[in-house]
Amino acid sequence: IIAKPREKFTEPEKQVLDQFIMKGGKTLWLVDGTTAEMEQLYNESGTTLVAANDLNLTDMFFKYGFRINPQMIKDEQGTPLKLATGNEGSESNIEPYNWKMAPYIYPASKHPIVKNTDGVKFDFCSPIELLKSDVKKTILLESSQFSKVIGTPTTVSLEMIGEETSPKDYANGGFIPVAALLEGSFTSMYNNRVLPFKDDKFLNKSVPTKMIVISDGDVIKNQLDKGAPIELGYDKYTGQYFGNKEFILNSVNYLLDYNGLINIRSKDVTLPLLDKQSVHDSYSQTQMLTVALPIVLLGIFGFLFTFLRKKKYNR
């Protein structure tokens, strides 16, 4: 699991990772495409400068059949962000706002990894571009219809919560991949290239393997409460649970071929529904059986009880 790396990878490090994959290793990439961090906005101006996050992995990802573009996704289907808007007496007035830079992405795919899971919370995620190759690619999560890409470098401000938008602003956007599964035989990024260090067991082509790419390292990040991590997916500020934990667990289980656990989690439970037409056709009969019949039976019982009681005491 490569989760939210912050420093550039060296060529020898990339060769080690590359050969791990070539020999059948499974990888879960959680990589930021930009330098944006929520903590950077908590300053006097409420703004921060966002640039591309250069980790020296672009050529490696390109060889494997995808690219994480150095851009951000703005989505109308955001998650709540609580901010102080003023004072009420001696206390600050805290209100939730729709933060469009933290998309709430609900799975539309029927793949077992995301089937029947709750929506996943992202923070400053980037677009994943799937390139033509022999590797099988499956989009697991993508932004909503009303989303678009914001290029870098740029500035992000908390004042964006007050922006008024319309569907026209997203006319050429929407449905941008942010998590993808790649399966098959990958070509080494050092194929026909000089190796950073000698390796007698170097492989140009991998055995069949798979990897999952997520364009946001914060998807796997726990919030802290008094210095201790709390459950993944729980937002302590809003008290809301998101599907991050289940999504990550399903991803790891799938990579490790624990398909039984995933199939149990993604199993469809179909509840039998009433046949509305049959109910309509037999409405009068059902009403007679459920309402009139008990009254008639109660009347007969009362009559027999009274009759037998009088007969007994009249002797």
Results as ranks from 00 to 15, higher is better:
Tyr64Pro: 01
Tyr64Ala: 02
Tyr64Arg: 07
Tyr64Phe: 10
Gly65Ala: 01
Gly65Leu: 00
Gly65Met: 01
Arg67Ala: 07
Arg67Glu: 11
Arg67Cys: 10
Arg67Ile: 03
Ile68Asn: 05
Ile68Gln: 06
Asn69Ile: 12
Pro70Asp: 02
Gln71Gly: 00
Gln71Phe: 04
Met72Ala: 07
Met72Gly: 06
Ile73Lys: 00
Ile73Tyr: 00
Ile73Val: 10
Lys74Cys: 04
Asp75Thr: 05
Asp75Ile: 04
Asp75Trp: 01
Asp75Ala: 03
Gln77Pro: 03
Gln77Gly: 00
Gly78Ile: 06
Gly78Trp: 04
Thr79Glu: 00
Thr79Gln: 00
Thr79Asn: 04
Thr79Arg: 03
Pro80Asn: 06
Pro80Thr: 09
Leu81Ile: 09
Leu81Gln: 07
Leu81Ala: 03
Lys82Met: 08
Lys82Ile: 12
Lys82Thr: 12
Leu83Met: 13
Leu83Gln: 11
Leu83His: 07
Leu83Ser: 07
Ala84Met: 12
Ala84Arg: 14
Thr85Pro: 08
Thr85Met: 12
Gly86Lys: 09
Gly86Pro: 11
Gly86Gln: 09
Asn87Gly: 05
Asn87Ala: 11
Glu88Trp: 14
Gly89Met: 11
Gly89Trp: 05
Gly89Ile: 06
Gly89Leu: 09
Gly89Phe: 07
Ser90Thr: 12
Ser90Phe: 13
Glu91Met: 12
Glu91Thr: 12
Ser92Met: 14
Asn93Trp: 13
Ile94Val: 13
Ile94Asn: 09
Glu95Gln: 15
Glu95Val: 15
Glu95Ser: 11
Pro96Gln: 06
Pro96His: 11
Pro96Phe: 12
Tyr97Thr: 02
Tyr97Arg: 09
Tyr97Asn: 05
Asn98Arg: 11
Asn98Lys: 10
Trp99Ile: 05
Trp99Gly: 05
Trp99Arg: 07
Trp99Leu: 08
Trp99Pro: 06
Trp99Phe: 15
Lys100Tyr: 06
Lys100Ser: 10
Met101Cys: 06
Met101Gly: 07
Met101Phe: 15
Met101Ile: 08
Ala102Gln: 08
Ala102Pro: 09
Pro103Leu: 01
Pro103Cys: 02
Pro103Lys: 02
Pro103Ser: 01
Tyr104Pro: 00
Tyr104Arg: 08
Tyr104His: 12
Ile105Pro: 07
Ile105Met: 06
Ile105Val: 15
Tyr106Asn: 10
Tyr106Gly: 04
Pro107Gly: 01
Ala108Thr: 15
Ala108Lys: 15
Ala108Gly: 15
Ala108Glu: 15
Ser109Val: 09
Ser109Trp: 10
Ser109Leu: 05
Ser109Asn: 14
Lys110His: 13
Lys110Asp: 14
Lys110Cys: 04
His111Ser: 05
His111Gly: 08
His111Glu: 02
His111Ile: 11
Pro112Arg: 00
Pro112Cys: 03
Pro112Thr: 03
Ile113Gln: 02
Ile113Pro: 02
Ile113Cys: 03
Ile113Val: 15
Val114Ile: 03
Val114Gln: 04
Val114Trp: 04
Val114Leu: 04
Lys115Arg: 15
Lys115Cys: 01
Thr117Lys: 14
Thr117Leu: 15
Thr117Glu: 13
Thr117Asn: 13
Thr117Trp: 02
Asp118Glu: 11
Asp118Lys: 13
Gly119Ile: 08
Gly119Tyr: 02
Val120Ser: 02
Val120Pro: 00
Val120Leu: 04
Val120Ile: 15
Lys121Cys: 03
Lys121Thr: 01
Lys121His: 12
Phe122Ile: 02
Phe122Met: 00
Asp123Glu: 13
Asp123Tyr: 14
